[in-house]
């Protein structure tokens, strides 16, 4: 070939590529502003444990939001995660406390069930072309109902030694007393999930397939990608993460509450969107979701430090943030469309 055609991404189109990073950049900036604001306003806010606590109190939410990230990236939505989490915690309680099943077996069974039910939901969505919203709505009702049937009151798991492991802490930089911080094992579980999810999404065919399907399902199909496997897979991942969230909740509270995680699906979706993932799929990062969860956690922390402000401000602020991010995404995608035509 004698001549070669070259095209450099022009400046305006380069912006289009960078446009992907604008929402997450905004989130990180927001996080920094909130943190610095907290330090300026409250002396005790500068303790590293404030940040560490975000990963303790929100461990279950983080895991579930990571699962939700897979689903939303693929262009779907999963409303069943909150109920699934509660059902998992309650099942573990029922299996171990009432039936005396070894805790290891109970945990494994619950994780397997979460994955399988996700597979089933995904299959219904893909093969029967049922809207994800409706198919997972059935899950939302079903698992909540099953949870309530197992028990309509709190079940304590305090007597089972297995569940002590979760909150065993590891000290860093001398631990809390010496100005450092400490993290329990559940935080490490959550962080491990984030790392695995990051690797899967960015470095495996399945992960790249999730982005491709979210970008354009019909294109992915014509490119010969395994669309069915990918679409069913993301719901399995989300189901697994929801069940794991239930296990972490069991560690965290050592009890099972039948009404745990009501509305958690909304928090997870909000965290994903605030983390810069576009709800129509195809664009976003799992690390953005971590930032999203941190923003929501920090918001609650700030309100707790403030003392006068009431907890409902958190919801309102999350709503405002959602609005801002959705309009930002809308604006970015519109200007992108304009440039291309």
């Amino acid at each position: 070939m004698s001549t070669t055609v070259t095209e450099r991404p022009s400046r305006t189109t380069l912006f289009d590529g960078l446009g992907r990073y604008i929402p997450i950049g905004v989130t990180v900036a927001l996080l920094i502003v909130m943190y610095l604001g907290g330090i300026a306003a409250f002396p005790r806010f500068s303790s590293p444990q404030v940040i560490a606590s975000l990963f303790i109190d929100n461990a279950a939410l983080l895991i579930i939001a990571v699962g939700m990230t897979f689903v939303i990236l693929s262009g779907g939505i999963d409303l069943s995660v909150g109920s699934m989490m509660a059902f998992s915690t309650m099942s573990i309680a029922a299996l171990t406390v009432d039936l005396g099943v070894p805790a290891e077996v109970a945990v494994a069974a619950v994780l397997a069930f979460g994955t399988l039910s996700g597979l089933f939901t995904g299959a219904v969505i893909h093969y029967f072309n049922v809207q994800p919203f409706i198919a997972t709505l059935a899950g939302l009702f079903l698992y909540r109902g099953l949870t309530l049937q197992l028990s309509d009151h709190d079940v304590s798991m305090r007597d089972i030694a297995f569940f002590d492991w979760g909150m065993l802490r590891m000290d860093f930089a001398g631990g809390q007393r010496d100005g450092g911080f400490s993290l329990p094992n559940i935080s490490f579980i959550a962080l491990a999930v984030v790392i695995v999810a990051f690797i899967v999404l960015h470095y495996t065919r399945f992960g790249r397939g999730v982005y491709a399907v979210g970008g354009s399902e019909s294109s992915a199909l014509l490119m010969g990608l395994p669309v069915a496997r990918t679409k069913v897979g993301v719901y399995a991942v989300s189901g697994f993460c929801a069940a794991l969230g239930g296990v972490v909740a069991a560690y965290y509270t050592k009890s099972a509450n039948p009404l745990a995680g009501v509305g958690l699906e909304l928090d997870a979706i909000a965290a994903v969107v605030i983390g810069g993932t576009i709800l129509t799929g195809g664009t976003g990062f799992v690390l953005g979701t971590v930032a999203g969860v941190m923003v929501m956690g920090l918001l609650t922390t700030l309100i707790a430090f403030q003392g006068d402000l009431s907890s409902w401000w958190a919801r309102i602020v999350v709503g405002v943030l959602l609005l801002a991010f959705i309009l930002l995404q809308r604006f970015l995608s519109r200007s992108g469309e304009k440039r291309r035509t």
Partner: peptide, 11 residues
């Protein structure tokens, strides 16, 4: 958006 924020407004 309002599904999430609305109950906060009500509170």
């Amino acid at each position: 958006i309002l599904m999430i924020a609305g109950r906060g407004i009500a509170q």
